[in-house]
């Protein structure tokens, strides 16, 4: 297990490097002059040339890349185009709010999706399973921004039970913070929950068809033992893997929800960067989000190897 972990961690380094190349090339391949795009068409040629000089955009691409990447290990992500502030502290300041929303949303999604999906899978074709299929399909098909808007209008605007917009840091007023958290977290959770539920149902049904489940019954094991140790144990492992591959759903959903509920997380920062055409900020954010995606997948892989003894051999 230790060897496998070290191996995967070592492999992570070239993966991150490859990611930085892709992100850099991707941003610079976008047609048109970035500076022109940022300042607008009406700006004078001299001004554009001056900015290009200031941000070092006249240098060869390779030099620009080396300059950019050499700052990364020290946490230097460059400066924003408009305010000329360092990007890293800006992003870092958004992490607590983003992390809080992500974890709360994920928790709600798991609470909603896991039990219902498992039950639907265990009692396939029962009335509960049919109800689950209808509800989860509805939830699954509903766009996140629409679901969030509905909740906001009902609970926040019409009935005024919860604040619908804004954020108070937990350290400042914990109770207020949680009040503000409820609507965005529930929206994110209800958006992601049906997704997890359907994956859980499929994983359980797949496990139920395995011969070792049938053989567990032939051994006369109690239903509880068969379900816990033979069905769920295997189903949860495959669910973990599928979930890791689909983590992008959570990350992108989070950006939508943050924007909708005025939640000052990293997602909103990205949306603003895109609207302001701040190439440097976009570049840094894409790199960070993609790194988070890879890091979560690394975590899932290590967890998978820990839970499934067959993995390390491959």
């Amino acid at each position: 297990m230790l060897r496998y972990t070290l191996y995967r961690l070592l492999l992570f380094v070239p993966l991150l490097w490859g990611l930085s190349v892709v992100v850099f090339v991707y941003i610079h391949l976008i047609p048109g002059d970035p500076v022109q795009a940022m300042v607008g068409a009406s700006a004078s040629q001299e001004f554009v040339a001056q900015l290009r000089e200031e941000f070092g955009l006249n240098r060869p691409l390779l030099v620009q890349y080396v300059d950019w990447i050499s700052g990364l290990p020290a946490g230097d992500l460059g400066i924003t185009f408009r305010s000329r502030q360092p990007i890293a502290p800006l992003l870092l300041a958004r992490i607590p709010a983003t992390l809080q929303l992500a974890l709360a949303g994920l928790l709600i999604a798991l609470l909603v999706g896991l039990p219902s999906g498992i039950l639907a899978g265990l009692f396939k074709n029962s009335p509960f399973d049919h109800l689950f299929s209808i509800l989860s399909l509805a939830g699954y098909s509903m766009p996140l921004f629409w679901l969030g808007t509905l909740l906001m209008v009902w609970l926040g605007v019409s009935w005024k039970v919860l604040p619908s917009q804004g954020y108070v840091p937990f350290t400042q007023d914990p109770l207020k913070n949680l009040q503000y958290l409820v609507l965005p977290a529930v929206s994110l959770g209800l958006g992601l929950g049906p997704y997890i539920g359907r994956m859980a149902r499929a994983a359980v049904i797949e496990a139920l068809q395995e011969q070792y489940v049938n053989y567990a019954h032939a051994k006369g094991l109690r239903m509880r033992t068969v379900v816990n140790r033979y069905v769920l144990r295997n189903a949860m492992i495959s669910l973990l893997v599928v979930f890791g591959l689909n983590i992008g759903f959570l990350l992108s959903g989070q950006i939508v929800i943050e924007e909708l509920f005025n939640w000052p997380g990293a997602g909103r920062l990205i949306v603003r960067a895109v609207l302001e055409r701040d190439y440097f900020m976009i570049q840094a954010s894409v790199l960070i989000y993609a790194s988070i995606f890879l890091a979560i997948n690394l975590l899932v892989e290590l967890l998978h190897a820990y839970l499934d003894p067959r993995v390390q051999l491959k």
Partner: peptide, 30 residues
Amino acid sequence: VRGRRIAMVVQDALAALNPVIPIGEQIADV
């Protein structure tokens, strides 16, 4: 009755064994 009075031996033993539980535990379960 199953496993205690009538026991089963199957053709595909690998498929009949739970891949993520140690062998000993699967016999202990009986």
